[in-house]
Design a protein around this nucleic acid. Structure first.
Lengths: 349, 349
DNA sequence: GGTAGCACTCTTCCCGCAAGACTGCTAGCC
DNA sequence: GGCTAGCAGTCTTGCGGGAAGAGTGCTACC
């Protein structure tokens, strides 16, 4: 009874692993006969049946009905993922292709995230979604208040990740271009290269007071920075929903509809990612572990991506519980790695 | 045989209209009996059967099989839409609700379009998609080249629709902030309020030459303006795909998959809109009129929205051919109207 | 021209039965 | 004690047939 077999003896562990493997491949409940024929177990199907019955008693397998083969349960998958599966690695070739494809994407942050999401959806043949970078670990670089007319203008905020926010503003009293320039310069002088979260409302208010510029500008700058910090719930890009239609578990249209609803609602997507926020590394959540009856037969693999030293976002793959975990984990990690590299090139230095 | 009955005598026209109406409501082939019972035709079902047989001979109706009722054909729907249907109007109440909801959306152009799309998806209970404004009829307002480090910066272009583009740039030689300011000022002085398309590559090149600033900046400005003109294929926002799952015509998963593919591919969505570009007003395209076998049982209603005097984008509803045309046309027009109004408030004056 | 009535066609639904897939158990073997 | 052959038992799946039902087209008649 070795630790890395999840508390099962070697033969049970091997049988559980093959059941998962086979079920992932075929989507059919796995029979004892199938195992003895396809895998060299060295025992007869009767013995396998006994072992399977014990695995079922232990909660690792379930039987859809009496005369059917077995299917892994949530905790069967969990044991497989934590202890039994052979970790995969992307080939050199594939790793390179991912890198190349991301390098070809535009320089704009949003486009890079979009491309990454689509790429991951395509390669994983599941639904991929990626949160846009959370900028609160990033540094403030520059703000520019641009004068358009005496009462309108644009505020542009640049953080270390690039253009972080831009917003039109409209004032109730006329203003000279000079006032905007002075405020921009003062803000830049004081806050350049400091963490974005240091540029607080009170710091802005103080500066506006010192300079004696219009009080209205305080609100303008605060709004722009607020949107640069992009709230607590960053936007999420999704791609690959059509891949799920082909999976036999989504023949049931109710399930499909609830998935589509999730995809179209930023909030639901974000909630899923939020559940993985606690762990700084790869997270796999299986079935009911996702905490919602609606997602009881889904699984999600989530991997953080970095910008510099900090994790700034998450990259996820969502699919049926019956997913090739090792492959998808490798794919998500590899893509996160490439994305992290791509982002550091992109950095405003 | 009146012109506004599409070349059919009054009774045939009425029967065709009721068949469409009834089929849209029930999704079941319509029987002669149903018509005589539900609508006061003043004739017996046998007479209706004779009329229906003639309508079928004329290509307006088809019969799924011998002992079934009738279903409208593409040209049946076409005649209905062009000549028979009673145009609908949004109630005052609904019109106001749409207006309110759009007014609550953020000031940012992208957010306004996103909200509009989601609103239209929800109200139409179909798939809605909206092209982002094409900016080539808009005017140039302002460009600002922002110095970040000696070799990097940000270019921000503001058009009459708001912030039209922003892009990071990186140079191979050092530059002084002053050079960027001079170029920005010169561009603003020369092009302010002129149509965006007047700011040509050669005009930029000439100005860069006159000022004697770095040749590299020519490329930077050109790239920024190029992206402000946002290419020939503006981005398209989509929402409401999950509504289609409930429609009986999409029980067939192949159809659903092809719809999802279309939604996820900007290009396919744009191609659909492109087909309506020719007409400046409301366009309804039915089934095979969409020009693709894949979309043979879909219909699309497309309505332009304006910014100032010009149509700058299209607002579309895609659903099964069996859609409530009058209602959706009213909804799309009403929403386009509200969006147009919302945009003119948003205008950079 | 309109209608009642009827024969005919085609789909849909349900039932029952046979075939097939696996299991669990028992008895016996090494 | 662990393993296996063999078999009875259970449950699903697929198929055929038959009844019910929905609608039509046609004919004969008003």
């Amino acid at each position: 009874m070795k630790a890395d077999e999840g508390g099962l003896d070697a033969r049970k562990a091997y049988i559980l692993a093959t059941v998962v493997y086979e079920y992932v491949a075929t989507a059919e409940p796995v029979a004892s006969n199938t195992l003895t024929q396809k895998y060299s177990l060295g025992v007869s199907s009767a013995t396998v049946r006994n072992e399977m019955a014990e695995l079922e008693a232990g909660g690792y397998l379930v039987q859809p009905h009496t005369s059917a083969g077995r299917v892994p349960s949530d905790s069967g998958y969990r044991t497989y993922v934590d202890h039994l599966m052979q970790p995969e690695d992307l080939g050199e070739e594939e790793r390179r292709r991912i890198g190349d494809e991301l390098r070809d994407a535009s320089r704009e942050l949003d486009d890079i995230i979009d491309s990454t999401t689509r790429l991951l959806g395509r390669l994983s043949k599941n639904l991929a979604f990626v949160t846009r970078p959370q900028q609160d670990t990033q540094t403030f670089k520059h703000i520019q208040l641009i004068w358009l007319t005496p009462r309108t203008g644009v505020a542009v905020v640049v953080s270390s990740l690039g253009v972080a926010a831009q917003s039109l503003f409209e004032l109730t009293a006329d203003l000279l271009p000079d006032e905007l320039t002075r405020l921009s310069n003062a803000l830049n002088a004081r806050f350049a290269d400091r963490p974005l979260r240091d540029v607080t409302e009170s710091a802005i208010a103080a500066l506006v007071g010192e300079l004696g510029v219009s009080e209205e500008l305080r609100g303008v700058v605060q709004t722009a920075l607020q949107s640069a910090r992009s709230g607590e719930q960053p936007a999420v890009a999704a791609a690959g929903a059509q891949n799920l239609v082909d999976q036999p578990e989504f023949q049931d249209l109710r399930k499909l509809r609830s998935i589509l609803r999730i995809v179209e609602e930023q909030k639901s997507l974000y909630d899923i990612v939020a559940g993985a926020m606690a762990t700084p590394a790869t997270s796999v959540r299986i079935g009911r572990e996702l905490g919602s009856e609606e997602m009881a037969d889904l699984s999600v693999v989530t991997v953080p991506y970095r910008f510099g030293a900090h994790a700034v976002g998450m990259l996820s793959i969502l699919g049926p519980r019956r997913m090739p975990y090792a492959r998808l984990i490798a794919l998500a990690s590899g893509t996160a790695q490439s994305l992290s590299e791509r982002l550091s090139e992109h950095q405003v230095s």
